Simulated assay, not measured.
Amino acid sequence: MTLALLHTSAAHVPVFDALRDADHPGLTLRHLVRAHLLDRARAHGPDAAADGVRAALADAMAAGADAVLCTCSTIGGVAESHAADAGVPVLRVDRPMAAAAVRTGRRVTVVATVASTLEPTTALLKEEAARHTRTVDVTTVLVDGAWERFEAGDQEGYLRRVTDAVDRVEGADAIVLAQGSTAPAAARATTAVPVLASPRTGLRAAADLCQRRRTERGRT
């Protein structure tokens, strides 16, 4: 099975390689890094990245992917909306996490380090709440100064700021880490509130998509 991953940072490549080795050793990953798509989305909104997303999905199909996982929460919705054009299933990495969050409780706090991620993640949570016939109240936290640490290569400083922000959250039933790059903060946080991250659950769901795609092909 082959899964293509659409990234907007090369930092995600070793993360998903490690998760594949641990959980899905038979899965082949094809990494497509398109950093400029996040730049466009941050400057002009997620839809501004649509042309680049479509091109990346075409590259994934040409590479023989059984499915595509978009690891960027800012453009994940754009990627899913073009699945029909791609001809293969497309999943945004944070969808399984969002589904788990709305099952956990009504009050969900989104923690992000890039402002452009807040609206797409909030919309996704409300979509998953409607899908599961639940009500969700979403609050958001933008971690000041964290993204600058990430861009400077200061991973420790980045995660420290995110973890501190998570531990300051009050009145939540679940805390959602909106970006895959913040996932290690889930293990570092000391809060009693469940802290949910997207990489592992997203990869698991994408691997399942690949398996179903292969099974469907075998029937035709």
Results as ranks from 00 to 15, higher is better:
106 R>Y: 00
37 L>P: 00
3 L>F: 06
108 V>H: 02
145 G>S: 10
191 T>F: 09
123 A>T: 15
212 R>C: 01
185 A>C: 09
190 T>R: 10
128 E>W: 13
57 L>S: 08
92 R>Q: 04
94 D>C: 04
159 L>I: 10
205 A>Q: 13
25 P>H: 11
50 A>N: 01
211 Q>G: 05
54 R>K: 09
167 D>T: 13
161 R>M: 11
20 R>I: 08
93 V>P: 11
30 R>I: 04
18 A>K: 02
211 Q>C: 12
202 G>Y: 15
49 A>F: 15
194 P>A: 11
155 Q>R: 14
40 R>D: 10
121 T>Q: 06
98 A>C: 07
218 G>Y: 13
185 A>H: 04
112 A>V: 05
4 A>L: 05
76 G>R: 02
127 E>L: 10
219 R>L: 12
11 A>I: 07
208 D>G: 14
4 A>Y: 01
198 S>W: 11
24 H>Q: 02
10 A>Q: 09
158 Y>C: 09
109 T>A: 12
98 A>N: 02
118 L>N: 01
3 L>K: 08
131 R>D: 01
111 V>C: 10
53 V>C: 02
29 L>D: 00
160 R>C: 00
28 T>R: 14
35 A>H: 12
20 R>A: 13
198 S>C: 04
108 V>Q: 06
74 T>V: 11
161 R>T: 04
150 F>I: 04
112 A>M: 09
16 F>P: 10
60 A>E: 07
29 L>W: 10
79 A>H: 03
33 V>Y: 03
36 H>I: 05
215 T>W: 15
172 A>I: 13
111 V>M: 12
170 E>M: 11
179 Q>W: 12
31 H>S: 02
47 D>P: 05
130 A>W: 01
207 A>R: 12
101 A>R: 06
21 D>Y: 00
56 A>N: 03
138 V>Y: 03
116 S>H: 07
51 D>T: 13
176 V>M: 05
97 M>L: 05
149 R>N: 07
52 G>I: 08
168 R>Y: 00
213 R>N: 11
81 S>C: 08
173 D>T: 07
26 G>L: 11
209 L>G: 10
60 A>W: 01
187 A>W: 01
159 L>D: 04
52 G>E: 04
82 H>K: 05
144 D>V: 14
110 V>K: 03
70 C>T: 07
211 Q>W: 12
176 V>P: 09
6 L>K: 00
98 A>Q: 00
22 A>Q: 09
67 A>H: 06
12 H>E: 13
85 D>W: 09
87 G>P: 09
143 V>L: 11
194 P>L: 13
191 T>C: 07
95 R>M: 06
108 V>M: 14
93 V>G: 07
161 R>A: 15
82 H>A: 11
27 L>K: 02
63 A>M: 02
158 Y>E: 07
46 P>V: 07
46 P>A: 06
55 A>F: 02
65 A>F: 03
45 G>D: 06
176 V>H: 06
77 G>I: 08
176 V>E: 06
2 T>R: 15
47 D>N: 13
63 A>C: 06
181 S>L: 14
96 P>Y: 12
83 A>Q: 10
78 V>Q: 01
217 R>E: 05
89 P>Q: 14
